[in-house]
């Protein structure tokens, strides 16, 4: 007796590289907001990188009267020290983006590590780590922020660490739940049965599987981090030696720009923060949308949620 599979259907030729390009293109076509977000972000990143060459005036250079009104020489006017607002805005982009990225990366590294360890090993380790996460989660962010900033002192590095410290809990919980799913997969069990070490399984099987989620969440977290940095600076807990958008708003606020009627000292940095956060959100939700298949089919998706008219009597909608 012989055992043969039914005749093999000819396998199509491997066309992987072009299909990946096609997948990217189709992603962009279906998520126009990702394109908008990416363009805005690229513009700001460009400004942040080449800021010193783009800014018409120096970061600390007094070029006119206090709260000078916008003019052709100073399109966004002057601040309380007579410094050109447009130049400040350009210099501030670098600090704001650096803090945003670095804070999100710290949160991702700490939260990701704790989430992976808790989710993969489970049991007592999971319990201990998650209770610790819960404690961090219930401390009000603002209070924690103020306490740490006043203990550690006001510096850029500390702000980044504070942001990481506040946001790692979200990351840890999310990653843990995903790792718990991956850990139960048969291919992880197979690797265990082969005698693979935990490190090998984590790096070869678990992390590649959760990487898309990790990336999407990091992008969304950058937006949160920038928001938090602005808030910290506005409360006067920012690094006094550098210019960030939050610090510009704080400056204008504390030097009573509003009573001078100098709206140009507050509105532009506010708009800049709003734009960047919006851009990160657009990009992040689009990525999340396309990577999380559950969001594609259900009302859970921000993108797909629609209120539909009720069907009429014939059942048409």
């Amino acid at each position: 007796m012989s055992f043969v599979d039914p005749p093999q259907a000819a396998l199509p030729d491997v066309v992987r590289p072009s299909s990946r390009v096609r997948a990217t293109l189709s992603f962009l076509r279906h998520h126009p907001q990702a394109v908008v977000g990416a363009i805005i972000l690229l513009a700001f990143v460009f400004i942040a990188i080449f800021g010193p060459y783009l800014a018409p005036y120096g970061e600390r250079e007094q070029v006119g009267p206090l709260f000078g009104t916008p003019s052709s020489a100073h399109p966004l006017g002057l601040d309380d020290g007579g410094i050109d607002m447009l130049s400040l805005l350009i210099y501030g982009a670098r600090v704001t983006l650096i803090v945003g990225f670095a804070g999100a990366v710290v949160a991702m590294l700490v939260g990701g590590t704790i989430g992976i360890v808790a989710g993969y090993f489970g049991g007592k380790i999971d319990n201990a780590l998650m209770r610790m996460t819960d404690y961090f989660l219930v401390i009000p962010d603002l209070v924690l922020m103020i306490v740490i900033a006043s203990i550690w002192g006001r510096s850029l590095r500390n702000i980044i660490l504070i942001i990481g410290l506040i946001y790692w809990t979200f990351m840890a919980r999310l990653i843990r739940s995903q790792v718990k799913v991956v850990r139960e997969r048969a291919y992880v069990k197979r690797a265990q049965a082969l005698g693979a070490s935990h490190l090998r399984i984590i790096f070869k099987h678990v992390i590649p599987q959760i990487m898309p989620l990790l990336l999407a969440q990091t992008v969304l977290m950058v937006a949160l981090a920038i928001f938090l940095e602005t808030a910290i600076s506005f409360l006067g807990l920012g690094d006094p030696s550098v210019t960030s958008w939050g610090k510009m708003i704080e400056n204008a606020f504390s030097r009573s720009a509003i009573s001078y009627g100098a709206w140009w000292a507050i509105v532009p940095p506010g708009i800049a923060v709003a734009l960047v956060i919006m851009a990160f959100n657009m990009l992040g939700t689009a990525v999340e949308d396309s990577l999380n298949p559950r969001l594609k089919v259900s009302h859970l998706s921000r993108r797909h949620f629609r209120l539909r008219p009720l069907p009429d009597k014939e059942g048409r909608s």
């Binding site: 997969r185 291919y187 197979r190 082969l194 693979a196 070869k204 599987q209």
Partner: peptide, 29 residues
């Protein structure tokens, strides 16, 4: 002593190529 699992759709890592899947035990050992 090797084991073969029930579900061939679940027991292969979707991110591994066939050659990597078959080579994995060799790498581990």
């Amino acid at each position: 002593l090797q084991i073969i699992f029930q579900d061939p759709y679940e027991s292969l890592d979707p991110r591994f190529r066939v050659k990597d899947i078959v080579a994995e035990p060799l790498e581990i050992h």
